[in-house]
């Protein structure tokens, strides 16, 4: 662990953060939310600083960019506001902020597709639903601010216990994770990336044409398995002139430097090639969830007995007829 962060720094940061969060949780009397937020930020900053110091010590090229710190601060700060804000609507809005900051970190982690998917699906759809429900299920606020707060929103439940538990959890988690990271292989490459260009003959061909490495009549040779004969290791592709079903004058050409699989492409390969069954399960779950939501909300049509009986009669007569 010492290689990555000094343990004292880690635990001190976590403790300070814990105190900060405990302080900022809503309480009936004045809760020092600003102070708590500051403390939390200091704690977080201590830990991240600890990481960064070591990183600067050892491998300066591996430091995360400044954007990381910005996004982390926004994400966690907004996260803190989610759990401390007394108003559910604001909490949900802060959660959107957390999501946005997360999406920013996704981009830093070169998961561009997922970043935008997250924003669209999560911030755009799910959270909006939350807002709807919150608005549906909350009484309209009156003039005075305090009245609009329901008592259960105004007061946190056992903030110290929760904060202690949570930050003990964080201490354990980060200890284990940090010491685990040390044990990971240095470069983290488990398997060489798959030869996905072979599945993209059109794109390879277009790039080759754009680079002018192949003649106009030449085409990429397609193997018996339906894949283009592209060698990712040597970065060559086999091209030839098509002639009634087969190729003549076959030769290998080098691929252009800038030809690469894009994030969304390789994600799609992984997604569709390796997890087709899982996609189906996800579909089943969504169907089930839809049905579940329908059933749950149908139940809420609570009529009083008399009304029910009145309804029952025409219903029965309809069926009779």
């Amino acid at each position: 662990m010492g290689e990555i962060i000094h343990p004292f720094l880690l635990y001190a940061g976590i403790a300070v953060g814990g105190i900060g969060v405990a302080a900022s949780l809503p309480r009936r009397r004045v809760s020092p939310q600003l102070l708590g937020g500051l403390l939390g930020a200091i704690g977080l900053g201590m830990v991240l600083l600890g990481f960064t110091l070591r990183a600067a010590d050892r491998t300066p090229d591996q430091m995360p960019s400044i954007y990381f710190y910005v996004f982390a601060l926004i994400a966690l700060g907004a996260g803190l506001r989610v759990i401390t804000n007394r108003r559910p609507v604001y909490a949900a809005l802060y959660f959107i902020l957390t999501i946005l900051a997360s999406a920013g970190m996704y981009i830093l982690l070169s998961a561009t597709f997922m970043a935008f998917a997250l924003i669209i699906v999560y911030a755009g759809a799910i959270l909006i639903t939350y807002l709807f429900v919150i608005m549906l299920a909350t009484q309209a606020p009156s003039e005075e601010e305090t009245d609009s707060l329901t008592p259960y929103d105004a007061e946190a439940r056992e903030p110290f216990f929760a904060a202690a538990t949570g930050f003990a959890l964080l201490a354990v988690l980060s200890t284990m994770v940090v010491s685990g990271v040390r044990g990971l292989p240095r470069d983290g490459i488990a398997t060489p990336p798959a030869n996905e260009l072979a599945s993209l003959p059109r794109r390879v061909e277009r790039a080759l044409r754009a680079a002018g490495t192949i003649e106009p009549e030449e085409q990429l040779v397609i193997g018996s398995s339906g894949l283009a004969l592209v060698d990712a290791q040597a970065r060559t592709a086999r091209v030839g002139i098509p002639a009634d079903g087969s190729f003549t004058s076959i030769r290998d050409v080098g691929l252009p430097e800038d030809l690469a699989v894009r994030n969304v492409e390789s994600l799609a390969f992984d997604f569709l090639n390796r997890h087709p069954g899982t996609i189906e399960i996800a579909g089943v779950i969504l169907l089930m969830a839809m049905l579940g939501a329908v059933v749950l909300s149908r139940r809420q049509v609570e009529l009083d007995e008399e009304l029910k009986r009145q309804q029952a009669r025409p219903l029965g007569s309809e069926e009779m007829a």
Partner: peptide, 11 residues
């Protein structure tokens, strides 16, 4: 690098 990973994991 593992260090950068640690940053993200902590967050």
């Amino acid at each position: 690098g593992g260090l950068t990973l640690a940053h993200y994991l902590f967050v």
